[in-house]
Nucleic acid binder design. Structure first.
Lengths: 309, 309
DNA sequence: CGAGGCTATAACGTGACGCTATGGTCCATC
DNA sequence: GATGGACCATAGCGTCACGTTATAGCCTCG
């Protein structure tokens, strides 16, 4: 009674949250898609979406159906591959932030692609979107700095990354081996826009320490932030694992808490072959970045660079 | 393009290997089923069955499709349950021999049904059919005396069971603590029909020892065999774990190799929740039956009896 | 307040699917 | 070796489901 077409249609509908656009993507008329989604909901006996104003959004059940639909679609495609070429060619999707890919996951990703059991699909997302991608089944695995437990997700600790202050080598603070928060009094900082987790962490820590500061530039992502530091616009607090542009130095800021990066996955998802392999490699290649040391940086010189296309 | 109906139809077709009968079971006309199977094969690009004489049999690809079809159907039903009642009510299927259920798996099965996470479906099969049921996805797990590796199957050692001679208490051999093979010279044995593994093992062992014997009755299953021993028709070599009828005694036969019972599962099958739980319980409740001791028998008196309906 | 964009329903045509009927093939039985 | 039976496979036909275009209803923004 259930049609796989309905599930397929529902996944792309859920990605667009629009009948009109999803229908175009499916090369189908909008009414046709509408009735397919309607039949799917009727068959399952639950409403799949609700109208909130002019926007559509998935119901809780709709999100479950989305996970199920993605799973069924992947299983079908994987099986067709197995039938034809003997093994699945379906990509395993890994979601993480851009910086995470650049500085943390290089060796693991290289090892996985070298084994080449299956294509790897990298989804560059911010923290919330990474969690959402894993939860909705868009990504099989995610890597992100999560603390505490997330409902429905299983998290495996990967590594801890200390926070450092990135400054020009000529900057007065560069003479110190270690930075205290009150050293930043009055500093012009390059920070992410309000609402981003890193911005929130910096704001909270400096507020607790009673340090006043001002934003120099708001930039998203470690690379742009460091770029502006190199331009002399200001200084920035970044992950210890970031690769610094020429002329910049990093000094640890021990008062800032280390961020714990973890591999996350859906608790109820079966760990299928290639996904399990990727998770294994991610955990196996984990290296701690408690503090940035030249030795560590020299030991794997092309690690971050290898991720640049 | 793939219809779940086709997969559903294919599973019952594969169980009947007959369009006529499968169509009846599906409340469908024979031609309708025929074209469904035809479309499934055409869509996948592989022939699903071949005619061997008047019998139909699945091709290798057809067997793979059967596994896939069963998996998809189970996943769909499980999801509908999860959507409606919050957790899967789909049964987990366990295949084993009748004697295995009676004497080996009682506590584990009781523990699983007590937890009652999902219904348990017991499939009583002989050795080959147990392996086939697991391989084809009809059963999620199997328990059987397998030695060595089976391709595509993962086996986890469960327990070892010694062989004993079951005889009336008044029998001359009952005065011995232990039986040697040459004690059986000229004996009238109750054995399974030719071709069954137990028959083969007995025949081979006695042949190697140069012992001549004659079959008294051919009976299938430990219970019938012991029944005939109780009737005085002959004596029998049975598993040490068998529960003996009143008036019979068992004496170990050390020269016969112990049989190793294992939990078997498809290597490429994901260990989903309830199946994993059942496997855990099976392994946790494993007890060795190296030799039949009264202490062990008294320690769990209703274990075999609990499995009788 | 009107235009634009989107959802939802209506009306209609085509194609897919199931049914009955029947030919073809293999095997059992005599 | 012939005959009947069981069953697979195909043909022809009718019905229903699905997709299309047309259009009404609704929300939002200029």
């Amino acid at each position: 009674m259930l049609h796989l077409d309905w599930l397929e249609a529902f996944t792309v509908f859920a990605e667009h949250l629009s009948f009109t656009h999803a229908a175009k993507a499916l090369h189908l008329s909008q009414p046709a898609l509408h009735v397919q989604i309607g039949k799917l909901g009727a068959e399952l006996g639950v409403p799949l979406y609700v109208r909130r104003g002019q926007r559509l959004e998935l119901t809780r059940d709709g999100q479950r159906v989305l996970v199920f639909a993605r799973e069924m679609g992947q299983r079908e495609r994987a099986f067709r591959d197995e039938l034809r070429v003997g093994e699945s060619l379906q990509p395993v999707a890994l979601a993480a932030g851009e910086g995470t890919f650049l500085y943390l996951l290089g060796p693991a990703i290289r090892a996985f692609t070298a084994a080449a059991r299956a294509p790897l699909r990298l989804l560059t997302r911010d923290l919330d979107a990474t969690l959402a991608a894993v939860r909705s089944g868009e990504a099989h695995l995610g890597v992100a700095p999560v603390d505490g437990a997330a409902p429905g997700l299983t998290i495996d600790r990967l590594t801890e990354v200390a926070q450092v202050l990135a400054i020009p080598a000529a900057h007065p603070l560069a003479r110190r081996r270690s930075i205290k928060l009150h050293d930043l009094e009055g500093a012009r900082l390059i920070v992410p826009p309000p609402g981003r987790p890193h911005r929130a962490a910096i704001t909270a820590a400096l507020l607790r320490a009673g340090v006043t500061w001002e934003p120099a530039v708001e930039a998203t992502g470690w690379e742009p932030m460091l770029h502006f530091v190199a331009l002399g616009v200001g200084i920035a607090i970044v992950n210890a694992c970031c690769r610094l542009p020429r002329g910049l130095v990093a000094r640890p800021v021990p008062e800032l808490p280390r961020r714990t990066y973890s591999v996350i996955r859906r608790s109820d998802a079966a760990l299928e072959g290639a996904t399990s392999e990727l998770r294994r490699l991610l955990l196996a290649h984990a290296t701690d970045w408690r503090s940035r040391s030249r030795k560590a940086a020299r030991a794997r010189p092309e690690q971050p660079a290898s991720e640049r296309r």
